[in-house]
Every structure is written in structure tokens, then in C-alpha cells.
């Protein structure tokens, strides 16, 4: 039997922690397309993702979940539409300690939602840092609807990443239930 695949996209601004997130749960070494950073403003880390990150979780013999991480820099946004095709849902990673990236996170969120209005949630990463914004303050800054889930996250910790993925899957189940109810009403 042919293996079935589903995908979840992890997106967010530059240095939000997308690669780390995927690395924490992927059963294979993340296929990363990182390059050394050349421009000064982006020198907050040594390398960045330029095409995509790719992680894998085998569910059973015939089902595999792929995790795709998008490049964070705006000049690679042409990749976003391609990566969003056929996704089950998406996670927007935000660096809780860098409010200057919140506006961009909002923009990325809306762009992805426009490409494919699938369920999504926001992961407020780096909550362990002393200058991290409170999750509910980030909700306000991102102008998130009260129904949109925003979760505290530490991308380096497997349990934290698992919780984020599970919450997204719960949202997908809830959406399916809602769609079912609508169908029954019709």
C-alpha cells in the first residue's frame, strides 16, 4: 500500500525558532537549507533558512506527517505559497522577546490564511527569556481573534513542541466537527 502523507507548515518571522521547533520532534535530522547570514541587521544568529526546513514523523506503516518550515526573511516569501499548498494546518512562530517582529508575524499569518484558510495557531516561542512578552499581550499585539489559540512555547523542548502540534490537531478535529454539523444542517 502506498504511504499517505500529510503536512503541517511552521512559519513566522526571521529567527522565531522554526528550525528548532521542527528539529525537536522530527525523527530524521531536519533537512535544512541554512546559509551563513551576510547582512548586519540579521546578524542575531549565524545561519538562516533560505528555502525550507523539512522534518518527518512516521505515524504508522501507511501514514507520514511532514513538517515544513518556511524561510523567515521576506525576500523568500515566494516560497510561502508553494509550501502552503495542501497543508493540513499551520503554526505561526513568534519570538516573544522581539516585539519588533510582531507586525511581520501578523502579516505572515494573514498571508498564509489567505493562501489556504486552514486551521492555525500561534506559538509564542522563547517564553523562557526574561524579556519575553506575556502570551495575552502578544495576542493583543497580533490582533488575534479570541477564538485563535496562542500557546506558550519553548521550541527546544520536545514536550512544548508536542503540545503545540497536539493543539493544532485538536483545532483541526474541532473544525471537522463543525463542518460535519453544517453538512447535517443542510
Amino acid at each position: 500500500m502506498q504511504t499517505q502523507t500529510v503536512k503541517i507548515v511552521v512559519t513566522g518571522p526571521f529567527n522565531a525558532g522554526k528550525t528548532e521547533f521542527i528539529r525537536s520532534v522530527s525523527e530524521i535530522d531536519v533537512v535544512s537549507t541554512e546559509r551563513k547570514i551576510s547582512t548586519a541587521p540579521e546578524k542575531v544568529k549565524e545561519t538562516t533558512t533560505v528555502a525550507m526546513d523539512f522534518g518527518r514523523i512516521t505515524v504508522d506503516n501507511d501514514l507520514v506527517l511532514f513538517l515544513f518550515g518556511t524561510p523567515g526573511q521576506k525576500r523568500f516569501d515566494f516560497m510561502w505559497e508553494i509550501l502552503s499548498e495542501g497543508m493540513l494546518g499551520f503554526i505561526v512562530m513568534v519570538d516573544s522577546s522581539r516585539p519588533e517582529t510582531f507586525r511581520e508575524a501578523r502579516s505572515i499569518l494573514e498571508t498564509f490564511h489567505a493562501y489556504a484558510p486552514t486551521p492555525y495557531l500561534v506559538a509564542a516561542n522563547k517564553q523562557d527569556l526574561y524579556d519575553a512578552w506575556d502570551v495575552e499581550d502578544i495576542r493583543l499585539a497580533l490582533r488575534l481573534d479570541p477564538n485563535v489559540k496562542i500557546l506558550s512555547c519553548e521550541a527546544r523542548k520536545k514536550d512544548s513542541v508536542k503540545q503545540v502540534l497536539l493543539e493544532l490537531l485538536y483545532s483541526i478535529l474541532e473544525e471537522m466537527d463543525r463542518n460535519e454539523s453544517k453538512q447535517e444542517e443542510i
Binding site: 514523523i57 504508522d60 501514514l63 490537531l169 485538536y170 483541526i172 478535529l173 471537522m176
Partner: peptide
Amino acid sequence: IKRLINRI
């Protein structure tokens, strides 16, 4: 989706 949840 439930299979995915159990796996995660």
C-alpha cells in the same frame, strides 16, 4: 487526525 494525535 486521531492517528496523528496518538502518534504525537
